[in-house]
Design a protein around this nucleic acid. Structure first.
Lengths: 201, 201
DNA sequence: GTGCTTATTGACTGGAAAGTCAATAAGTTA
DNA sequence: TAACTTATTGACTTTCCAGTCAATAAGCAC
């Protein structure tokens, strides 16, 4: 095997173990030693990464890229319903990515915020784009401004991400329904859109 | 000063420092040493508490009690709008309590879940009561079941708690509006209720 | 005050964590 | 193949953290 290939393989092995560790235990709760216990030599980790923070940020970056990739591959992504459904799908199928992304979004460690912000901003830009597209195809009911609706969408995002990527959600009615493909997203979205739009959506 | 008074004062001092520490850094990120650095002797902490977990659970319990207390003191608590507004108010004014409560709700450490659950359940009971009361005074629009509406309310809760208790929220438009008392809650709630109820709410 | 209990102190321990390093194995280039 | 560079190893150091403990100070009951 070529050298560069080996290095790449090593790095991806480390990242995989790290995703598991941080996905399970979060940034503060996760340890480099645990990553080693997945069968990777410690020195090798520090040969490829500058330190714990560096590994964590790589995981966050990978989570973000996978999420955005996943979303952009979807058909009809400009449709808010398929967009949100895809997002929930992703968080449901990739719990480690979900947890890492979510923790960074809500409670990332203070000393890392400068590094975390740019990673998260790509997702924010995509969101903004989709939300504006969705708003273009809606007629808002009286008393609802475009800004109101945007705020509303942002809150919706926290709600969906947070709820469906969190442990609390496991073993709830909603979780079961989604597993059984009695998909409730359309219904929820219907409730929400019905709240701001004119007429039937 | 009386002995029992001193002990009480000591405990409340420890708790205050601990609330700061866990509120800032979360359970895994918070350390007993940092609590000591607030001017409390370490031995004294362990004289009054069994360990880090014990301190943390006391903080969580205090957060929960303060939240529930705050909510129950409100006028017209049975009204969903004032209820949610009060909740957001609380989280906004008590960021440490908010963060601790929120972390426990979403990502409490695995080994503590048995101790955390009963503390959180009081809040859940209160919620359930309010939600049902609110539903009694609403006529749901066609195709929306009572269960749907309850799920919807629960999601709303995560959304509001999560969003308004998280660092991401700081320095956002919404945050500014709330600080300036251009309270946006009624509007949000209106959107939400309009999504499930028949006619104008 | 005397004897007793409890509060308080700070130095201490053991272990686990992040991070280092010299030595070796394995590719790479000439 | 020889010289060189990079990957890999495991033992090592340092730092930090949870938790302990013997000694002292302070309230309390008589």
């Amino acid at each position: 095997m070529k050298k560069c290939e080996k290095t790449e393989l090593t790095i991806s092995k480390i990242l995989e173990a790290a995703m598991n560790e941080f996905g399970r235990n979060g940034y503060a709760g996760g340890t480099v030693n645990n990553i080693c216990n997945a069968g990777i030599n410690k020195g090798l980790i520090y040969h490829n990464f500058a330190g714990k923070d560096d590994i964590y940020l790589a995981c966050l970056k990978q989570s973000s890229e996978r999420l955005i990739n996943y979303l952009e591959q979807q058909d009809r992504i400009e449709n808010l319903e398929s967009y949100l459904a895809a997002r929930m799908d992703f968080f449901h199928n990739y719990p480690n990515e979900a947890h890492i992304f979510f923790e960074a979004l809500l409670t990332s460690p203070h000393h890392l915020s400068d590094s975390v912000t740019p990673i998260l901003s790509e997702f924010n830009i995509l969101n903004e784009k989709i939300y504006n597209q969705a708003l273009d195809s809606l007629t808002l009911r009286n008393g609802v401004s475009r800004n109101d609706a945007l705020s509303y969408f942002h809150l919706m995002q926290v709600m969906l991400n947070g709820y469906f990527s969190s442990p609390v959600f496991q073993n709830t009615d909603l979780s079961e329904k989604i597993k059984k493909h009695e998909m409730i997203v359309p219904k929820l979205l219907d409730f929400m859109l019905y709240g701001i739009a004119k007429g039937e959506n």
